[in-house]
Nucleic acid binder design. Structure first.
Lengths: 218, 218
DNA sequence: AATTATTTTTAGATTAATCTAAAAATTTTG
DNA sequence: CAAAATTTTTAGATTAATCTAAAAATAATT
């Protein structure tokens, strides 16, 4: 039985190892979990003893198959709870993360499988991220960043890279929601800002924002 | 912000002080929480410092108004989650306690108020226990133990005193569920066992079981 | 009311999770 | 490639929750 802290470390290692091949660094985990490096070092030793990660001093951490499966199970729970909060309890997508961080640690297989059924076996969470199945299998879909599109290209908004509350509220204010069709009308030379059409309206999006918006290309 | 352990102690004191006027004893709390007396003593000091209980050495613990309100809030969460598990996730009433023990500690006012709305503002949990309102007000209904009825008297099954999984499964097996109309046909002199009618069927119930069944008298 | 039994508290340890400060290892850079 | 900078680990403390064993207080019983 893993503690909340152990589970959080596994999750952090999972997320941080997506964008890279080497071991996940102690500092990056500490930053991700808002804790300090020595705390992480201690935890890495413990998780290594439990065969959930491989870890050699100064070389960062990598999930074992077991650790990966455990991490995906926590992520599955997190994302299913997020769906529940939005679909059934009328939370906004910018409000769910904090509560799901708590709910993901509840231990009950039956609970999560029944929740899955109750929600109609959703495949995506409210931010467009895929929900792993009970075996830890995750279905990836090809998607590109809005910032990578060229003038005239278009796509459907399918996810966010940064799902911070601030960015999600920013999107709400501009009526940009999952499923919106976005087309690049013009790219400003000076600051790379994008003039885009979304539905019937046109608006300007900064490079920084465009770098957080995933599209399914059309 | 209270820890799970602190919350569990408040809940235990609440439940144990219902049947008595004096302070709740250290040992009874330890027994209730499956912990040891010295652990309880430490916690009582801490809860007293936080003004959630009044506590003097060797004289047991009593909830302050603040402590009582906190305890009722935890009980509210516990019982709402139990309703959710039974009504929405198809749990049996004998399976909900353990999971609700975990869910009751999730911290989010919005979560619990939205859950309440989603469930249609239920007033009773699956075992017939009343659900406190957000202000900590609890609506008691008069009920009597089946063991207190006399021959020929009848009532509606409205709750259990012992909500252990074993007893609830025992009731399931006999098709005794909340709302059942129970009439005492005969009381056995020898062992005080009861011959009762429930719906169309007659059966025998031991004194021990009858002592755990609450009825609303008719 | 004095002795015995029970309950409760204190004293002292242990484990887990955390931190700061200092040491050690690795990486970067001139 | 040596010095400097950065990262990581170790060492040592702290807080919370737990325990066992022993001491102290209260309650029960002749």
């Amino acid at each position: 039985m893993l503690s909340h802290t152990e589970e959080n470390h596994l999750k952090a290692i999972f997320h941080l190892s997506k964008d890279q091949n080497e071991g996940v660094s102690t500092n990056s985990i500490a930053q991700n979990l808002k804790t300090k490096a020595p705390s992480v070092t201690d935890m890495l030793k413990k998780l290594c003893d439990k065969n959930l990660i491989t870890y050699k001093k100064y070389q960062g951490a990598l999930l074992t198959d077991d650790g990966r499966k455990t991490a995906l199970n926590i992520i599955r729970k997190h994302r299913l709870w997020e769906v529940f909060l939005v679909e059934k309890l009328e939370f906004n997508w910018s409000e769910v993360h904090e509560v799901a961080e708590q709910l993901e640690h509840i231990k009950s297989k039956k609970l999560i499988n029944e929740l899955d059924r109750f929600l109609g076996y959703p495949t995506k969470d409210p931010h467009g991220d895929p929900i792993p199945n009970p075996a830890g299998f995750i279905k990836h879909t090809t998607k590109v960043l809005l910032s990578d599109l060229k003038k005239g290209e278009k796509g459907t908004f399918v996810g966010v890279k940064d799902s911070s509350s601030a960015f999600l509220k920013f999107l709400d204010k501009r009526k940009i929601s999952l499923g919106s069709l976005i087309e690049i009308l013009h790219i400003e030379d000076f600051d790379d800002s994008l003039h885009v059409s979304i539905g019937n309206t046109n608006l300007t999006i900064s490079m920084k924002s465009a770098n957080n918006i995933y599209l399914k290309k059309q």
